[in-house]
């Protein structure tokens, strides 16, 4: 955990807005620039910022690695599932028009919203996963080095009286 006051307070203030902006980009992709990919990255950046400031352990207890790896698969399954659903409704794979039997345009809106959500979920989860893995290895490496230094110190202590 970083002890400096300014980054900690700034992160605490910024993270809710980063996550909110991520959700805005996610669900506003039909109307302006953005979409699932950008939103996923922004959302993951919020979580990564939390992990950088408050430590990997606290981030992992908030967004557990098990949940993240579940979400990695879930997003892709949502996307592909929409395709399967449209096939079951009698249209081609990923032809969202079939999702609404009255108005194909509404079906398109619904389909785009759902698959963008799937894209965002997978992208955010993958970014968080990659960061967790890198940071986790760094943590293990540091701990091992610290252990070795302790061993070295003990050896010196035992050697010095001789």
């Amino acid at each position: 955990m970083i002890e400096h006051l300014v980054p900690r307070i700034l992160a605490k203030l910024l993270i809710p807005f980063i996550l909110l902006f991520g959700l805005y980009v996610q669900f506003h992709g039909d109307f302006g620039p953005g979409g699932g990919f950008q939103a996923g990255v922004i959302f993951a950046a919020g979580i990564i910022l939390y992990a950088l400031i408050y430590g990997l352990d606290r981030a992992r207890s908030v967004v557990t690695p098990g949940l993240v790896s579940f979400l990695v698969a879930l997003g892709l399954l949502i996307y592909a599932g929409v395709g399967v659903a449209t096939m079951l409704l009698g249209a081609e794979f990923l032809n969202y028009g079939a999702l609404d039997s009255h108005d194909p345009v509404h079906g398109q809106h619904l389909g785009i919203l759902i698959i963008e959500f799937g894209v965002g979920t997978t992208v955010a989860a993958v970014m968080i996963t990659i960061f967790y893995q890198f940071a986790g290895r760094l943590k293990i490496t540091r701990e091992l080095e610290a252990d070795d230094e302790d061993d070295a110190d003990e050896e010196q202590v035992t050697e010095s009286p001789r």
């Binding site: 892709l76 969202y96 398109q108 785009i112």
Partner: peptide, 29 residues
């Protein structure tokens, strides 16, 4: 006419080229 979203980029990526985007998500996965 077909999709009626203001951002044409989203319409192309998510609907007209939806299968390609599925492939991209699979790459990230």
């Amino acid at each position: 006419v077909d999709i009626d979203v203001p951002n044409i980029v989203t319409a192309v990526l998510a609907s007209y080229r939806g299968f390609d985007t599925l492939g991209e998500v699979t790459v990230i996965f």
